[in-house]
Design a protein around this nucleic acid. Structure first.
Lengths: 212, 212
DNA sequence: TGTTACTAAACGGCCAGTCAGTTATTTAGA
DNA sequence: TCTAAATAACTGACTGGCCGTTTAGTAACA
């Protein structure tokens, strides 16, 4: 045993974030129920007991993981909407491109899958995600579309459904990646999907006068 | 104790189907891991031990549940495609209407959610669903769109992405129903979504000559 | 009376959560 | 600056309960 190397360090401040990050990886791979605290602890570089210095229960960790993924995104979406007061087409390209970037380079897709999968067992998590993220994002998009309708840019129709139409292919492509690509399915190229989707949908969405 | 009423009946032929149906209900509500054999047994009207006369393990039941949801649908989709050799618009309205009906009146939506949620833990189930149902359906739709492109009905573009664009709102609306509606989210009206979606998307999809 | 579908109780492995002890770090006294 | 006592972050072995699975026995039906 190397006398100079301590067996562990006391790093109270950093532990919670490290544990949450480790838990995200393990939950994303196994799902909530099949994830073992032992695995989370090992991944975080602590013992199982140490986790309980910072979290009450396993569910508590899950809540922290899911909650953490929300905050940075909701502000981003709203800022994006505010930044494009002009033609709807600009806004849509900006927003969808931004979301596509988030979804490819962060574990948001994994978390989404977990929220869908565990919604029945953790209704309060589904509620938080809906109230604070999904509903906000959809509402922002819906409002932007309704405003464009008022300006005469967009044809009549339910703006909430238009918003759904816009983001649905992105979500499905992400779930496809998480679900079927690991078993050999051909992936979808996210930028290509969104590019073609926006091009196609805008033609049906915009009034004649608003087309480029 | 009523002497005339037997404690149980011997109904070997019916048990498997009853157990699978009960398991579907319990799995759909709780997810695979949180579902208890005890609950499935009670719902099916048998004892826990009886289940093991017909299934090897809990996973075995899950496989039966998921597999059962596949067969009736894949044939339906292919028949639908074969029945509409004419203009793409007819086919799309037929197919999406049909799928919307299935998804509202059968537990396919629940099963889809389960497949997404448990794909990592049961890769062979994800594979079966992909190979036998999802990929088939998407492939059929893609082929129909490609054929329409060859006829000059549909604009250039990746037909597989067009297919994704077409069905994505339906899938998201279903997952929305399963995930967020139970916690107070406003549901989407599936027929309204598909009607507006087809109307809008076709405008962007069809060539000028093919528009009604 | 024999066969076997079925029940109910018991088993055992797994794992979230606990706890008594250990070690890093801080504080305070010399 | 060194040392010792005090503090609390951390470890790892342990446990209690839950639940999938087994099995010995029972009851339905031919």
């Amino acid at each position: 045993m190397d006398a100079g190397a301590p067996k562990f360090r006391r790093r109270k401040a950093d532990r919670p974030a490290e544990i949450v990050q480790a838990a995200l990886a393990v939950f994303a791979e196994k799902g909530f129920a099949a994830a073992k605290l032992e695995d989370i602890a090992r991944q975080a570089g602590v013992s199982k007991g140490a986790i309980y210095l910072y979290f009450e229960t396993k569910e508590d960790i899950f809540r922290a993981v899911v909650g953490q993924a929300i905050a940075p995104n909701v502000v981003a979406v709203k800022a994006m909407a505010a930044a494009h007061p002009g033609p709807l087409a600009d806004l849509l390209r900006g927003v969808t491109g931004h979301i596509a970037g988030i979804v490819t380079h962060t574990p948001l897709g994994c978390v989404l899958k977990m929220v869908v999968g565990e919604a029945r067992n953790f209704p309060e998590i589904a509620r938080v995600w809906h109230d604070e993220l999904v509903s906000q994002a959809l509402g922002t998009l819906t409002a932007a579309i309704a405003a464009a309708q008022a300006r005469g840019e967009v044809k009549p129709g339910d703006p909430r459904i238009y918003a759904l139409q816009l983001i649905a292919p992105l979500l499905v492509a992400v779930l496809w990646r998480e679900t079927f690509v690991p078993v050999g399915a051909e992936p979808f190229d996210l930028p290509a999907v969104m590019s073609q989707h926006i091009d196609t949908l805008l033609l049906g969405l915009l009034t004649e006068g608003a087309r480029p």
